[in-house]
Amino acid sequence: MAGVESAFARASAGPEIAVDGASNPDVDLLYDINGLTRSTPEWLDRAIGFVGEYGLLVALVVLVLWCWTSVRRRPEPETAVAGLVWAPLAAGIAVLVNIPIRGFVERPRPFLDHKGLELLVHGKTDYSFVSDHATLAMALGVGLFVANRKFGLIGIGLALLEGFCRIFMGVHYPTDVVGGFALGTATTLLLAPLAMALLTPLVTAIARSPRAGFLVRARRAPLTPDTVDLPEPRVADDAADPDAGRNDLAA
């Protein structure tokens, strides 16, 4: 009778996303990646924990600013700058979309359901699916790609590293990270046509402003005699050879 009651309790509790590490590839991969902490020095674990929590997101913000300083020097930078404006906006929208998703799925953090995980960051009490960090990172990376492919590829690479770190730290399942990548990418790309249609005219208007135009176009230094290579004055042959006239008279 007790067995029947326990089975009924498990059934009424709803489906469990990850309960058995031996039969669930998601949990198997979690243990494999997080298990790498046992062979790494403690200082490296602390460094990865800091990088995964703060460092990579800061690096992506710096990358956006670096791209901005680069594209401003182009002859027509309005479209690229509009793409850079869209990147953080898309990241913010994706995180807002994730709020109801987390509330609907209600997936606990992996360290709450599975023993033996090395937890590198403490204090995580919210739900696990989908990863906010993975969502933010990939939205910024894809937004960068919309503005500039070279910087975008670097940004996407940092986002992938962010996802690995979240699993390594023991705070997310692999599917949490994949879901974050999908959410960040979908939000950025699906809304990009509308966002660019609205942002490009705004950025173009700012570029024409005498006061705020430097935000879009890099100001060029005014031309002065010191900065302009003036052609050397041509010297007449007679002036170059003052004795030439005397020689003609003498002849």
Rank of each mutant, 00 (worst) to 15 (best):
N148I: 00
D243L: 15
A207W: 02
S70W: 11
A205E: 13
D241W: 07
L230W: 14
A182R: 00
V235P: 09
S39Y: 07
W68E: 06
T227I: 10
A159R: 01
G35S: 08
A80F: 04
N34C: 11
Y31V: 06
V19C: 09
T37N: 15
R149I: 08
A218Q: 15
L198T: 01
V95P: 01
P201T: 03
V71T: 08
R38K: 13
D241F: 09
L44S: 03
M138E: 04
R38M: 04
A195E: 06
E118M: 04
E76D: 15
W68N: 03
I206E: 06
T135S: 12
K150A: 14
G170N: 05
V58Y: 14
L230Y: 14
T69E: 15
V95S: 05
N247G: 07
L223Q: 09
G155H: 03
I156S: 00
G180C: 10
L199Y: 00
L65R: 02
P231T: 12
D241L: 13
A197F: 08
P201H: 00
G170K: 03
V235Q: 13
T125N: 12
A22K: 13
A236C: 06
A244G: 03
L120K: 01
T69D: 14
L199W: 00
E76N: 09
L249R: 08
V177H: 01
L202S: 06
P222G: 05
V142W: 01
N148H: 14
Y173R: 07
F214S: 12
D226L: 10
E118L: 05
V216E: 09
L57G: 09
P110D: 06
E16D: 10
M169K: 00
D126P: 02
N34A: 04
Y31T: 02
Y127D: 11
V203M: 12
A197T: 06
L30K: 01
G116M: 10
N24L: 06
F50M: 14
I93C: 04
A59M: 13
L249M: 09
A134V: 06
I93E: 02
V142P: 05
F111N: 07
L158F: 12
L89T: 08
F145K: 01
L191F: 10
R102K: 15
L112K: 09
V58L: 15
L140G: 00
T200I: 04
M138V: 01
I154V: 15
F214P: 07
T204H: 08
G143Y: 01
P193S: 09
E76H: 12
P242S: 11
T69R: 13
R46W: 04
S131R: 04
A82I: 02
A182Q: 00
V85N: 03
A192Y: 10
P88R: 05
E42A: 14
G52L: 08
V121I: 13
E42V: 09
S70L: 03
G157P: 01
L63P: 00
V51T: 12
R10I: 03
F129C: 06
L191D: 05
Y173G: 04
P108H: 02
A134W: 06
A186G: 07
G55I: 07
I17T: 05
V81W: 01
V58C: 03
P210C: 03
D229L: 14
E232H: 02
T227L: 12
I99D: 10
V178M: 13
L153V: 11
L84T: 08
I156Q: 02
